[in-house]
Design a protein around this nucleic acid. Structure first.
Lengths: 213, 213
DNA sequence: ATTGAATTTCAACAATCGTTGAACTAGTAT
DNA sequence: ATACTAGTTCAACGATTGTTGAAATTCAAT
């Protein structure tokens, strides 16, 4: 139990995570967060330095764990192939499946955090900067692995392929309900199992089409 | 010249479009918009009913034209195949190329509007609702065309494939600069030509992999 | 020159914003 | 009992928010 377990601090982070995810940083006030957390407004400034710091701590609370399990998934794939090379599908699976599995297993815990990531990834203002800070070391590790599997491909093709993957993945995280409308209820944004079944195949085919050897 | 050409109104819409795109609806104040538009604060309420109405008019100003040219592109593809069926690549090209061509030809005019769409598409709050209102009639038309080309595919596969396409396309529109960081400058978010060269191939391969006949 | 409508300016409103300092409570160690 | 620290409450600050009403200006039509 090395985790910071102060209960009030955790309640504030939970409330902030949900509200930031739904309405963005500027769309939510400290008062709304503290009302949802059932705590006094001033407690926000006892446990955090500022609104911006609160936002940063919301991001930091879960990002480290995510990067850990995704790195481990990639290392497991590589260990499974001590002599030959893994497939593109296996590497992409290591990138996406840990996230999707968490979401499927405990939707209430992860959905808001993923929605927040979706918003940041598509935010022209500081989205690139924030996503790079939190995820690029891990992403570079994955792209290196893909370079090894596709050694004769143009690196630009690989980066753009990752870009398309990133867009597809984070729109899934946003869970906007649009696919529900569009399909007349046939598909549901929150149906993670359907995404697990389909996204790796879709994305891997895109990589193969673009990053030919 | 049937367009509404009131110059002040257009300047307000231009300023609002750029600021909403960068910082979101709640991240921008009327005063900031009117300062950029070099007009008095009250003029916002002479030309528009409210901040929300201003936002809606920013959206409406360009959406009709976009839907027109994309529908025309699809009809052109279909006219080119009076007897046989067009390819998946052709239909996806009709969906994406008109948008990307506009962006390549007049980046200053369209980039902010596209950034706004990227943000809305990934906004958990009202993103699904807004995107459906503005684009779903057109999108349904495209999915129907794809159903005709892939008659034996599961419709759910088609809707999810479109979902992945939508995510890849709108993250491109966001132009966050992340691919610039990640690739160490090799790729640039604003390089539309690179996207035109790659996205249709990537996405079409995904459709084929998922929506087999 | 005068009317009248369209457009713009100026001043202000109540509400809410992020943030702070001082007082208060609870519990632990001396 | 006392002192100390962590956690919490209360009241308020200056600034900014969306919005409005009335006055001033512009300009074409009479």
């Amino acid at each position: 139990m090395t985790k910071d377990m102060h209960p009030t601090r955790e309640r504030i982070l939970d409330a902030a995570e949900e509200l930031f995810a739904q309405r963005g940083f500027e769309g939510v006030s400290i008062r709304q967060i503290m009302t949802k957390a059932e705590a006094d407004v001033s407690l926000a400034y006892y446990h955090f330095e500022s609104k911006r710091d609160l936002f940063d701590q919301v991001m930091l609370r879960r990002v480290e764990y995510l990067n850990e399990i995704r790195l481990k998934a990639l290392e497991d794939v590589e260990k499974r192939h001590p002599d030959d090379e893994p497939t593109v599908e296996e590497i992409i699976g290591a990138f996406t499946q840990p996230l999707l599995t968490l979401l499927a297993e405990d939707h209430d815990k992860w959905s808001h955090y993923y929605q927040l990531i979706a918003q940041i990834n598509n935010s022209p203002d500081r989205g690139g900067e924030l996503m790079s800070r939190y995820f690029d070391p891990l992403v570079s590790r994955f792209i290196d692995a893909l370079k090894r599997v596709l050694p004769d491909s143009d690196p630009a093709d690989l980066y753009w392929s990752y870009h398309f993957l990133s867009g597809a993945l984070t729109l899934t995280f946003a869970e906007t309900g649009r696919i529900d409308n569009l399909s007349g209820g046939l598909c549901r944004s929150t149906d993670v199992a359907s995404v697990i079944d389909r996204m790796p195949a879709f994305v891997a085919a895109g990589f193969h089409a673009l990053c030919k050897n």
